[in-house]
């Protein structure tokens, strides 16, 4: 039995220990905010925070996070008012919105590690997250806004 804390709640799994965390979250735990985009850690749509690190849940097995704390978009802030989320709304970042949970989790992890990133640091840190609609300019501005106070 694998035990993992997700958004503060303990969850358990006695199936395939190699099951990617992404599918545990989405299909078994019903946390569909985390998205499937590529399955190969190439696009960042499935990004969650494990302890304090941004992690691609599509290539992370449920076994890899046993005993650790996973935060998904649903658990980032109880009212959805994390500075990154607020900044996203102020800048009107999303188009289709599908990649945005991953983008927001990546940005939140970046700001935990580096509260005042430069524009170059933002562009580098966010380069693993693809947005096919092309919201990059606004993502960059929103991360900057979140880092300077929303």
């Amino acid at each position: 039995m694998i035990k993992v804390k997700i958004n503060g709640q303990e969850q358990s799994w006695d199936g395939d220990p190699d099951l990617p965390l992404l599918w545990f979250l989405r299909d078994e735990a019903g946390l569909t905010g985390t998205k499937f985009g590529c399955g190969q850690a190439l696009c960042g749509a499935c990004t969650v925070i494990v302890d304090k690190e941004a992690v691609r849940s599509c290539i992370t097995s449920i076994n890899d996070v046993a005993g650790r704390e996973v935060t998904t978009i649903e658990g980032l802030h109880p009212d959805g008012d994390h500075p990154v989320q607020k900044a996203w709304r102020q800048v009107n970042v999303p188009q289709c919105g599908f990649c945005q949970a991953g983008q927001i989790m990546q940005a939140a992890a970046l700001l935990m590690e580096n509260p005042k990133p430069s524009h170059d640091q933002i562009r580098e840190a966010m380069a693993g997250n693809i947005c096919r609609c092309g919201c990059y300019q606004r993502i960059e501005n929103a991360v900057h806004l979140a880092s300077t106070g929303v």
Binding site: T32, K35, E74, G80, R89, P94
Partner: peptide, 13 residues
């Protein structure tokens, strides 16, 4: 906008 930024927006999947 709010649902997208909080993971509540529902897509096909």
């Amino acid at each position: 906008l709010h649902d997208i930024t909080t993971g509540k927006a529902r897509y096909g999947a």
